[in-house]
Design a protein around this nucleic acid. Structure first.
Lengths: 121, 121
DNA sequence: AGCATATTTAACCATATGGTTAAATACAAA
DNA sequence: TTTGTATTTAACCATATGGTTAAATATGCT
């Protein structure tokens, strides 16, 4: 169970609409677990799991006040995601000129030879 | 098997380092499946699957030339992802509530815990 | 036709994900 | 100490994901 790299964790956390919705609501204010859970048609433990995913991706942090564990948005990791995506911004911004300048930096992440779940049987 | 919403599909596709690497290489040029597969330590069918995920998320399109199925980057769905993330940009940008953020950090961490971010200002 | 190359499909496997219900834990208030 | 509220953990389930190997398919070349 190799822990995935942070950027993968962030993108993975964002790949669920409930979690994105949760982040959206936390942008305005901190909220407790029950408050967060209220609008969704799922059990409290399901919300707890979603929060755990967001917490592991560092997208939220938790406080502790009496029996409440308020959740706070930590948007910092989104900057990394934004940085990654922004490399491709030129593709939808019609500035297809000066292609060559990016050819190196685009491969910053590079090939992952052997780094992948290397279960070579 | 309800098909997830497009944005979730995009984020999910981006949550794997091999797939991000593939997109990065396709930013430079179109590539065939075998060409794409070459740097990675996994089988061709595994690559085929990754390409299917990217294709379903509309992040690539496929051509057909002889027995080759060249892959082409279609970065446009990334714009949707970028739009979503950009809502949070204020959280990591200079202009946003720097002082208030700083005070809360002090209160939360205490005096001697000079943690993580050196973004003093 | 027959062989080689490129790619996909099928079947399988292990682990991850996203949900459930029931029980446990943590704290507050009587 | 008991009770109520907030939250998490445990156990379970179905499906998804990411990989494998072996076989099938598609096309080009002699």
């Amino acid at each position: 169970m190799t822990t995935p790299d942070p950027l993968s964790q962030v993108f993975s956390a964002l790949s669920d609409p409930t979690r994105r919705s949760i982040l959206g609501r936390l942008a305005n204010t901190e909220l407790t677990v029950s408050e967060l859970a209220e609008p969704y048609d799922m059990s409290l433990p399901a919300i707890t799991k979603h929060l755990k995913v967001l917490e592991n991706a560092r997208l939220i942090s938790r406080g502790k006040t009496a029996q409440y564990r308020p959740c706070k948005l930590e948007a910092e990791p989104l900057k990394k995601a934004d940085d990654w995506i922004s490399t491709y911004r030129r593709f939808w911004e019609e500035s297809f000129d000066r292609l060559d300048d990016y050819l190196q930096t685009l491969q910053a992440e590079g090939p992952q030879k052997g780094k992948q779940n290397g279960k070579s049987k």
